[in-house]
Amino acid sequence: MIEGLLSLLSSPIVSRAIIGALLIAVVASTSGTLLVFRGLSFMTSGVAHAALGGAALGLYLQYTGIAPWFDPILGALLFSTLVAMITGYAGETGISQKMEVAVGVSFALSMSIAVFLMYYIPPTQVPQIWGYLIGDILLLDNLDLVLLGGTAVLLVLLFIVFHKEFIYVSVDMEGSIAHGLSARAYHYLMLITSSLAIALATKAVGAILVYAIMVAPAAASNEVVRSVRGVVVSVFIIAVLSELAGLAASFTVNASPSAIAGIIAAMSYVVAMHIKKVREHANSDLDELELAVPGHEYGHGGEMGERDSSGGDESTRVVSEEPV
């Protein structure tokens, strides 16, 4: 049995798939984490579908002879960048809700362009457009791995050098600008590199795996892990475990590795939400217990149970005083 396992692991298909899984986990722990911090988990699917529109444009330009050199992957990367630019423009003031709307609009626009162009492309080539969404981790070739590897290395380098700036922009865009940071540049750098990474990862391993691995582990980790570094490490671990479990399942029960990995990653989010709820319940019980103790005073520096009153009901307020 061990010999069978070793021969399976040494097969080029499986070893490429394992390397691909590790690289996708790297993309998720950098870009995926930052997008969830930025409140932009929806951007992954928006960018993947924008890439579809770009690929359709590439095929159209090739087929009509307008620009035979325009490879569909160039169109995919171009459209992904456009989504990042539109999203970035909407979110320049730091409000993530506006960016989610911009992603939704870009998503619809790209899909409309894709469907529009499909009408002018021979039906035999249309499946090639959809192929930009339907990859498979077991069908990775060496070029896919090189592209994914390059993307992962670039993301890791950017994350190591600029993670503070990306975090500052996510936490306090206005304050960062006021203190002299070129916040808009980092804002766009983060969105554009994430978009390009999503587009390339989607081309390599397929949309389902990218959606699942880019969003769910980061969202799950962000619910329960209490530090930025902890979230990054946790995302990597959840992503790798989900993908390896998916690969193992594909050999034992003949299932799609992406689907199994997606289900496991999504379950991690459900489990994390449950852990958070249990933890909050335990904390509120503790607060009630503390309040019930006669003479209890909150510790030095804090009134943890205090709630904001800003923006509350209109009330009478003393504005100023002057000695008479």
Binding site: G94, E174, G175
Partner: peptide, 25 residues
């Protein structure tokens, strides 16, 4: 300038530590 924005402009989605907020300045 050292600037303190309105508190609701600070995003709470990032699990950043108190020390990191203060050092940010």
């Amino acid at each position: 300038v050292r600037y303190v924005p309105q508190r609701d402009r600070i995003e709470l989605t990032v699990p950043i530590k108190v020390k990191d907020i203060v050092l940010m300045g």
